[in-house]
Simulated assay, not measured.
Amino acid sequence: MIKYYSITNNQVIEHDISKEEMKKVYYKLTPRQFYLLHELASKTPDSSDEETLNFIDRVLSDSKLSYSSNLKIIKAFLVGEFVVDFSKRYFIHILPGDDTYLNLNSEGEPFLNDMYQWGTHKTIFTKNEIEDMKKEERFRGINFDECLEEALEDDED
Rank of each mutant, 00 (worst) to 15 (best):
G80F: 00
M22E: 10
Y4R: 09
E156S: 12
R138K: 15
I17Y: 06
V25A: 02
P45I: 11
D155R: 04
L65F: 10
D99G: 05
Q11P: 01
I130F: 05
E153D: 12
K134H: 09
E20V: 13
C147A: 14
S106R: 01
E129N: 02
A151G: 06
E149V: 13
Y27E: 08
D145R: 06
Y26T: 12
E21G: 09
D98S: 14
D46N: 10
K28C: 02
D85M: 01
F82E: 14
E109D: 06
Y101R: 02
S61K: 11
D154V: 09
E146Q: 10
N105H: 03
D57P: 00
T100L: 08
R138N: 05
K122Y: 06
M1R: 15
G141Q: 10
S69F: 03
R89M: 09
K19M: 13
E146C: 05
E20A: 14
I13N: 06
N70E: 12
N143A: 01
H93A: 05
S18Y: 00
I73R: 04
R58M: 06
E50H: 08
Q117Y: 03
F144M: 04
K75A: 07
L65G: 04
Q33I: 11
D57R: 12
N105A: 02
Y116G: 13
T8S: 14
E107A: 01
L60T: 13
F91V: 01
V83F: 03
D46K: 13
L152Y: 08
D154K: 13
K135L: 15
S18F: 02
M115P: 11
A151D: 04
Q33D: 12
I2F: 08
E131M: 12
S61N: 01
I73E: 03
N54D: 14
E136I: 05
L78V: 06
R32D: 08
E153Q: 11
H93C: 03
D57K: 12
I2H: 13
K19S: 15
Q11F: 11
R32G: 10
L102D: 04
L53T: 13
E149C: 07
T52A: 13
S61R: 14
L112F: 00
K88S: 15
K75D: 11
H121S: 11
Y101H: 02
K88P: 09
D145M: 01
L95T: 00
Q11E: 15
T126F: 01
V12H: 12
V83W: 02
T120H: 05
I92P: 07
V59A: 14
N9W: 08
F125W: 11
S48I: 15
E51I: 03
W118V: 14
I92S: 00
S61Q: 01
L102S: 06
S69Q: 04
E129P: 02
N103A: 00
A76D: 03
N10G: 09
D85P: 02
I94M: 03
P110Q: 00
T44K: 14
L36M: 14
K75H: 13
V79D: 04
S48W: 11
D114W: 00
Q33P: 11
D114T: 05
F125G: 14
M1K: 09
M115G: 10
S68M: 12
